[in-house]
Amino acid sequence: MEIVQVCYMVKNLEQACENMHRLLGVGPFLGGIEFDLANHKYRGEPARPVTLKGAFVQSGELNIELLELKSEGPSAFHDMYLPGEEGIHHVAMFCVDYEQRKAELVARGCTVASEFTFGDGIQIGYIDARHILGHMIEIYPDDPTIHDMYRIAREAPSRWGGQNLIVPWEDA
């Protein structure tokens, strides 16, 4: 399994995109809108959906995600940072068998912090590995929808004219 993404929790998405672009030269950032992660289970119990505002940007082969938390309540996102705090939240990996990979990580001493469905019912999970790595691990199935998001993010810099730093997914 390979790490395909690193995600940062940020206070303000637009400012974080500008800061990362200015410091690292990456762009464009794809997304920029609020979305809900539904059918939330927090540590095995039903919980309210989590609202985030997010963007993807590519740096070589590594995808970088920036997320601004917009909702309250328990979640893997709230476990890591208090309101106003920023930092690395998770690394992400595809897995051929979601349930098997989740079970393997739990057997290695991690816990399932949050699970959601995304898009058309795609299961995603945040595994709490803070005691080992200092952050969460996001796992999701080897799904064409998510792979397509990564492909679009990889191709976006070659088509970007530099006008808008944050580009909606539908315009990417």
Rank of each mutant, 00 (worst) to 15 (best):
V6A: 15
C7F: 00
C7R: 00
N12F: 07
L13A: 10
H21D: 08
H21S: 13
R22W: 03
P28T: 03
P28E: 04
F29P: 07
L30W: 02
G32R: 00
I33P: 06
F35Q: 14
D36A: 15
L37C: 06
N39P: 05
K41A: 07
Y42M: 07
R43Y: 04
G44L: 05
E45S: 14
P46L: 10
F56K: 07
Q58F: 03
Q58P: 11
E65N: 07
L66V: 02
L67M: 10
E68W: 05
E68I: 07
A76E: 05
F77K: 03
D79Q: 06
L82Q: 14
G84Y: 03
E85G: 13
I88H: 06
I88T: 12
H90C: 13
H90L: 08
A92K: 01
D97W: 04
K102R: 14
R108M: 14
V112T: 10
S114M: 05
F118N: 09
G121Y: 00
G121I: 02
I122K: 01
Q123T: 13
I124Y: 01
G134T: 03
H135Y: 11
Y140C: 13
P144A: 09
P144M: 04
T145W: 01
H147E: 09
D148F: 08
M149Q: 11
M149W: 05
I152Y: 04
A153E: 05
E155A: 15
G161S: 08
Q163A: 12
L165A: 12
I166T: 09
V167W: 01
P168H: 03
P168W: 02
P168Q: 05
W169I: 11
E170V: 09
E170C: 08
D171G: 13
A172D: 04
